[in-house]
Structures are given as structure tokens and as C-alpha cells.
């Protein structure tokens, strides 16, 4: 039977709840069963997946955008490009005849090129970050989006990284935290979203915001509670009230924290966790209605 592509995003409103922990362990158990799977580390500001999953860097490329270069000899200082720019990336003083591109603010939309009637603006490639691919085993790959320090937004690098995954593959996406643009861009492409949270008032507040967002996008999702035992009952009660599927509950345990802290995978250290992550995948495919894995 032909396998359908399935994209699963692992996300959380609050940072540090265990997205990377869940992503890398889920990837690991599937890899060990020779399931062809690609993990995309979409947390381009702080990518960490590769520290848990060693592999050879087989391909890397820069993600660039076109920024304008203004030839001041040709420029008539009409100011139309600055008026077209929605990002205040062109600093312009008409009387003083000063015009300057602020590359950090440029989004590469190309409006200034269209605006200029005097061919005074030419494009230049500016690097936003890199996409690195790692071959883990014969049929498993890790793709990492890594934003350059100081770049305004991780979104172009994240999009480029996700594009590298074959549409027919099983793809896990370790999403950026929050519910703003980078999160939406990642989960928008997902068939199923795993929300990782912790049972604290902060975790609950951010979980609610993530759930509302996913509801409005019409996504299927379930929740993993990490560090259960710390905190209170708020998150558990919320899931029950809203009838949201609790996919897994991971207790707070110094041993688990210690395994993670050294860059080891829990599913390699404890057989019971290997089984639990495999079961997690079965639950998701059952909920998604695709049991061919």
C-alpha cells in the first residue's frame, strides 16, 4: 500500500516545555523501526535537535533574500521607493539628498524595485540563515533551519527547511515556541499538531492560546503534559472540560532531566519509554485515520 505523507508538528505556546525532547525521541523510535522519517528542526532561532541525533552533514545551503542597492549617481531622490517600503527600511531625507538602505529592516518584498522609475535600484543577495541536512540512517533525515544572528525573522529559513522534506514522507516538525508568525507558518503545513505543555498556570495560559489558534485553523491536535507532578491540576482539568486528547503524560523525574541534560535520548536509555513513544505514534495515526505505518 502506498504510504501517504503525514506531517506532524510538535509545538508549544510556552518555551522550554519539552518540544525538542518529544520530537527527538519520537524520531528515534520510528528510526529504530526503519520507518522512513524526516525531522525538521523549525526552531530556527535556537535549533537543538542535532545535538541529540548525530549524523553526517550531507547538504547545506544559504537562504537569502534580495535587498536593494541604490546607485546614488542615478537616483533622482524622488523618494518613491521609501514611500513604497512598508518596513521603514529605506532612510530618506529629500532636502539633504540622503538615501540609505537599512538591510536589517528589509523583508525582501521587492516593492522598491517596482517603485524606482530610474533603474537606480539593483538587487543584492543577503543571507538570512542556512538549511542543513543530516543523513541519520539510510531512510531517515534531519533537516535543520538555522537563522543567522541578528536577522529580523526566522520565517524564510523555516519555510525553506520544510520545503526540503519530501511531500510523500512522514515528517516531524519541531516548531518554534509561541503562537506568532513562525509558529503559524510551521503548523499551517501540519496534518496533526502535538502540543507540549507543563502543568503550571503559565503552561495552562499558553496552552489555551495555542488551542484557540489551532481551533481557528481547523487543525487536529492532542496534548502531552511534561513534568507532571510539579504544579497543579489546572491543565488536566482544562483538557477534560474541553475534551482534548491527552496523548501522554511524562512525570517530572530527576533521572529523565539528567538524561536530557547530557544530550542523550530517553528512548535509548529506557525500554518502557521506547514503548510509550511508539504507542504515542499509534494514537496519532489512529486519530488521523492513517494506520499504514
Amino acid at each position: 500500500m502506498e504510504r501517504m505523507g503525514l506531517k506532524i508538528a510538535i509545538a508549544s505556546g510556552k518555551g522550554g516545555t519539552g518540544k525538542t525532547f518529544v520530537s527527538t525521541n519520537l524520531f528515534n523510535v520510528l528510526m529504530q523501526e526503519s520507518v522512513p522519517v524526516t525531522l525538521v528542526d523549525c526552531d530556527a532561532e535556537e535549533p537543538n535537535d542535532r545535538e541529540f541525533i548525530p549524523g553526517d552533514n550531507t547538504n547545506s545551503f544559504d537562504v537569502t533574500q534580495e535587498v536593494p542597492v541604490i546607485d546614488t549617481a542615478t537616483c533622482t531622490f524622488c523618494g518613491k521607493c521609501a514611500e513604497y517600503c512598508q518596513y521603514n527600511a529605506i532612510f530618506f531625507l529629500q532636502e539633504e539628498r540622503v538615501i540609505q538602505v537599512m538591510e536589517d529592516l528589509c523583508h525582501g518584498c521587492g516593492a522598491c524595485f517596482v517603485a524606482c522609475e530610474y533603474r537606480a535600484i539593483t538587487p543584492k543577495e543577503s543571507v538570512l540563515g542556512t538549511v542543513n541536512s543530516f543523513q541519520i540512517t539510510e531512510n531517515t533525515t534531519l533537516i535543520e533551519a538555522r537563522m543567522k544572528v541578528g536577522v529580523h525573522s526566522p520565517v524564510p529559513v523555516v519555510k525553506a527547511a520544510i520545503k526540503q522534506a519530501k511531500p510523500t514522507d512522514l515528517v516531524l516538525m519541531d516548531a518554534p515556541p509561541g503562537t506568532s508568525c513562525p509558529f503559524i507558518q510551521t503548523v499551517n503545513l501540519a496534518d496533526y499538531v502535538i502540543l507540549v505543555t507543563e502543568p503550571t498556570p503559565f503552561g495552562l495560559s499558553d496552552l489555551k492560546q495555542s488551542v484557540e489558534t489551532l481551533k481557528s485553523m481547523g487543525k487536529r491536535y492532542g496534548v502531552i503534559i511534561n513534568r507532571a507532578g510539579l504544579g497543579d491540576e489546572g491543565v488536566f482539568n482544562y483538557l477534560e472540560q474541553e475534551k482534548i486528547s491527552l496523548l501522554m503524560s511524562i512525570p517530572f523525574d530527576r533521572e529523565i532531566a539528567s538524561v536530557y541534560s547530557t544530550g542523550k535520548l530517553l528512548t535509548n536509555e529506557f525500554l518502557e519509554w521506547k514503548a510509550k513513544f511508539r504507542e504515542l505514534f499509534n494514537i496519532i495515526t489512529a486519530q488521523y485515520g492513517n494506520s499504514s505505518y
Binding site: 521587492g110 516593492a111 517596482v114 507558518q185
Partner: peptide, 11 residues
């Protein structure tokens, strides 16, 4: 979701 708000299309 993908729109960046640059307004070029409107122009």
C-alpha cells in the same frame, strides 16, 4: 497566513 503585508500586490 503567508501575506507579509508589503502592499506590493495592491500597488
Amino acid at each position: 497566513t503567508s501575506c507579509d503585508g508589503c502592499q506590493l500586490c495592491a500597488r
